[in-house]
Simulated scan of single mutants.
Amino acid sequence: MQEILLHLPYFGPVSHFRELVKPAGICFENEDNYQKQTYRNRMYIYGANGKLLLNIPVKHLPKSKQRQHQKYRDIKIEKDLKWQKQHWKSLKSAYQTSPFFEFYEYEIAPLYLKDYNFLMDFNYDCFDVIRSCLQLEIDFKKTEEYFNDANDFIDKRDLINAKKNIEIPEYVQVFQDKFGFLSNLSILDLLFNEGPNTTNYLKSLK
């Protein structure tokens, strides 16, 4: 059976986790170049005023070196900005009235207290927390070289593109009565609203 090749996002969208629950091996792309405007350092949640972007600030190369490519695994987080405090505050504000926020918050909150240097390290920890919350046994590998044509894999790396519009079936969201259903938000939106049913929902997606 072919493995599914994916990028590692920051609490990726529902469409990303739909692939992770499929009965196939998972391989994360560790050798790609970093690109802006992707789910590597951003997620979207449902805030009181609609769709809300949470973005992790990253260190940029000096202007003299900005034409050079940086590997995703080498991207450092910009620590001068108090993004962790702001992201956790936004998550609490958005989901503290959701059915399952209190059930999971003590597993997720430590991510916003620990000091991280590299974005990829943080994202792997986010992934581990979701696996724990959903009690998912997901074995995965990491690439050791970059494949431009990943013919030996089921290539789903395009799911990292935050501009990609993907529609998914509705579930009940906290502020849905105000702005309607918002499709393909962060896995946290599904988790806080659906709780233990999250895995069944993901497996039902085509």
Score class of each variant (00 low, 15 high):
187 I>V: 13
34 Y>G: 08
177 D>N: 12
120 M>I: 13
168 I>R: 13
96 Q>H: 15
101 F>W: 14
73 R>V: 10
12 G>H: 07
198 T>Q: 00
60 H>D: 11
141 K>D: 09
50 G>I: 04
94 A>N: 11
110 P>M: 14
115 D>I: 13
105 E>D: 10
116 Y>Q: 14
63 K>N: 10
140 F>V: 01
82 K>V: 10
90 S>W: 12
179 F>K: 04
93 S>A: 15
192 F>K: 07
23 P>Q: 12
41 N>P: 04
119 L>T: 10
22 K>Y: 01
9 P>K: 03
88 W>E: 12
70 Q>V: 10
108 I>L: 14
102 E>D: 13
36 K>D: 12
99 P>M: 12
82 K>Y: 14
199 T>R: 00
58 V>G: 07
202 L>N: 02
57 P>K: 10
98 S>P: 07
90 S>D: 11
22 K>G: 00
144 E>A: 08
14 V>H: 10
51 K>D: 03
107 E>C: 06
174 V>C: 06
150 A>Y: 09
136 L>A: 02
6 L>P: 06
2 Q>R: 11
190 L>I: 07
6 L>N: 06
151 N>S: 12
82 K>N: 14
153 F>M: 05
6 L>V: 01
169 P>H: 02
30 N>F: 11
22 K>M: 11
194 E>T: 13
186 S>M: 11
203 K>V: 03
129 V>A: 09
203 K>W: 03
52 L>G: 01
187 I>Q: 00
203 K>N: 03
79 K>I: 14
